[in-house]
Computed example of a mutant assay.
Amino acid sequence: MTTYQASGDPWHALADGTRRAIVERLAQAPCAVGELARDLPVSRPAVSQHLKVLKCAGLVTDRAAGTRRVYQLDPGGIGALRADLDRYWTQALARFKQAAEAPEEHTEEVP
């Protein structure tokens, strides 16, 4: 039996392939658990557990729609991930620029 840990860390939540597939599906449109489970190779209860992890990580929200819960991406959580990636990318580009603009060190080759 698999136990799903809800750590609250969005990067950890996305480390699982099924949760990434759920996020990809929710990026297209909000869905109920049953709709998500139809497209995934896991049971409906497993999808619910994955959604709990994603919700704890701040990546999805849910709302009642009659007797169902409809899930959608949380723009705030997705925006925070994007900000992380932008920060990492900006740092990498700054280091690359610094290395490219640094004076070239001359070393003598030994024959």
Rank of each mutant, 00 (worst) to 15 (best):
A94L: 10
Y88P: 01
E109M: 12
K97T: 10
V47I: 09
D74A: 08
V110N: 13
D84N: 10
A83H: 10
Q72G: 07
V23E: 00
A83G: 03
R44T: 10
R44M: 11
K52F: 05
G77W: 00
R44N: 04
C56M: 12
T67M: 11
R20T: 04
E104Q: 11
E105M: 08
Q98T: 12
A92Y: 03
F96C: 11
A65S: 09
K97A: 14
Q49T: 08
A100Y: 15
R95L: 10
L26K: 00
R25N: 07
V33I: 15
H106D: 12
T90C: 02
V47G: 00
D62S: 15
E24T: 11
L36G: 02
S43F: 08
E24S: 06
R38K: 11
E24K: 04
V42I: 11
K52W: 09
A64N: 15
E101S: 10
V33N: 02
E104V: 15
V70F: 01
L85R: 11
A94V: 12
I78H: 00
Y71C: 04
L26S: 00
G66C: 14
C56H: 06
A64S: 15
P45Q: 07
P103R: 13
L85G: 01
A64P: 01
V60K: 00
L40Y: 06
A57E: 02
P30F: 03
A32I: 09
C31N: 03
D86Q: 14
G66W: 13
V23A: 01
E108T: 12
A37N: 05
L81D: 01
A21S: 11
R95A: 15
T67D: 09
P75N: 09
A32Y: 12
D74M: 04
V23H: 00
E108L: 14
L51H: 05
E109R: 07
E104P: 02
P75E: 04
P41E: 11
A83S: 06
V33S: 11
L26H: 02
D84G: 01
A27L: 12
I78T: 00
A21R: 03
A27D: 14
R82Y: 07
A100L: 11
R95I: 04
D86T: 08
A27R: 13
D86W: 07
H50E: 09
T107Y: 06
A57M: 07
A100H: 09
A57I: 07
V47E: 01
R87A: 07
L51Y: 03
C56Q: 12
W89G: 00
G79H: 01
R68M: 12
E35K: 03
E105I: 15
G76M: 08
E104Y: 13
A46V: 13
